[in-house]
Design a protein around this nucleic acid. Structure first.
Lengths: 260, 260
DNA sequence: CCTCGTGTTGCGTAATTCGCACATGCAGCG
DNA sequence: CGCTGCATGTGCGAATTACGCAACACGAGG
């Protein structure tokens, strides 16, 4: 018997959700899930079967593989419709930012240790940064993520920085906790965050936080583009642009103190 | 111990998913879930807590209520990106259908006993049918649903009609299995389905099935509008329009036999 | 202050789940 | 063609796990 932790999680549910997420990353079979989770094949099978019975998965009649059921997830997603509304509200501002900067504009929220991109307007230049909605990126090396991190109270940020796994993606990724902490302090002072090729070589991003009617930071807005266009010289200009649109969107969301 | 059914489902996972879906329909508290599922409060709490630990739910610090975590569901949804692509492909056809008919065009797939609307183009008239993406409607009283039902093999349809709960929504909803069966046979012959105020009074819909490269019916396409514009006289004309665009979209999807 | 309702946690029980073992089916190969 | 290897799917018994009971903490309301 494993030692009881502070809070006991329901094991079957935990494993079932893990199996579900595996199926979302690609078709799975009981043997795969069993190996990945360190459980018996039969157990994995019963979890998958239950997920299928509840509509989350489908099973291919021929190959016997379990697949995620897109319709089910679309339905679930439709129920958290607030985000859809978000896209509608933010759409005009993203377009404005995209047109003013000429680069891909995007908007993301925090989910655990990641930023999730929930709305975007891809740039129209031949060479533009592009990725699918719903993509997640680490907080510590994305502009949106750093803008969100910097908005937290000092103590929270300090604790997070100390305990987080600062995975390196490029030579420029900040992996030292102390350096990241100082970096975030500067982000807060300046009002915007920069990802200077810390996630992808050749890609620079700029982001600023968005405030709601309670002045709470709930999301971040930014642009991403190739280093050839977002140069160090033009960076301050882009940053002003991002902050300006972020303030406008915040005002639209009812943030106090923002320009009308 | 309850008698074992043909296939045993994992109870904890089943209950956990039920709790999750409750949370998607609005904030929940352990006592609510416990009562709805007929389980103890403590059990409901542990399920909710596990869902929270895995990122599916959030708990309000003040009210202690559990809320769905939109970011998580957006992330999950982003992974089943095939549907997003679908919207892209279907977008032009939906627009064409909307512009030709002047009514709201929509596209849906089957999910259990419902149709899920996964793409649409709302009509531009002052009075137009409109609903959010991800909405679900019963198969037996929606045009899209009947188009999907009629495409199945006879035996499957017969069994479904006999066992399904044909809930009535308006006076015109078809609730007799035998009548629905005949109705669906006619749908198959005609090539299109009509929802003649069977779901909402004053709303008429027309839909036709979409075929993929294997000639399998995978979705349905249609229009919805007020009975004042979609009159019985003009209905055949609208039906031709729907079938034509459906055939074009099917061809785009690689369906054999459809016009290029 | 008392009561009621609810969130949260400890604990013992027993129901539920888990893993083993096996039947079955399929694909590759000698 | 039959043998082997591998995977899915299903009884079944053991015991781990999840469940319900009970109790505590806390806040609201009377």
């Amino acid at each position: 018997m494993p030692p009881r932790r502070g809070q006991q999680l329901v094991q079957s549910l935990e494993r079932g959700l893990a199996a579900l997420e595996m199926a979302l990353d690609g078709n799975v079979r009981p043997s795969h899930v069993a190996e990945a989770l360190g459980i018996d094949r039969s157990t994995a099978y019963r979890l998958l079967y239950t997920l299928m019975a509840k509509g989350y998965l489908l099973q291919d009649e021929r190959t016997r593989e379990f697949t995620s059921n897109p319709a089910k997830f679309f339905q679930l997603y439709g129920k958290v419709a607030t985000l859809l509304d978000w896209s509608d509200v933010a759409g005009d501002f993203l377009t404005r930012l995209r047109d003013q900067s000429g680069e891909t504009a995007n908007l993301g929220v925090r989910q655990a240790n990641n930023v999730i991109y929930i709305a975007h307007k891809p740039g129209q230049a031949a060479l533009s940064v592009n990725f699918a909605l719903g993509t997640s990126r680490p907080l510590h090396c994305s502009a949106l993520g750093k803008a969100l991190l910097a908005a937290q109270p000092d103590a929270v940020t300090a604790e997070w920085v100390a305990s987080a796994a600062l995975t390196s993606y490029t030579a420029k990724t900040i992996t030292e906790p102390s350096r990241l902490k100082r970096h975030l302090e500067r982000v807060r002072v300046e009002g915007y965050a920069v990802d200077d090729e810390e996630t992808f070589a050749g890609v620079r991003c700029i982001a600023a936080p968005l405030h709601d009617h309670r002045a709470q930071v709930i999301a971040a807005l930014g642009i991403s583009g190739p280093t050839t266009r977002i140069t160090h010289e033009r960076l301050p200009h882009f940053a002003q642009n991002v902050m300006q649109v972020a303030a406008q969107l915040s005002a639209e969301l009812g943030a106090p103190g923002a320009e009308p």
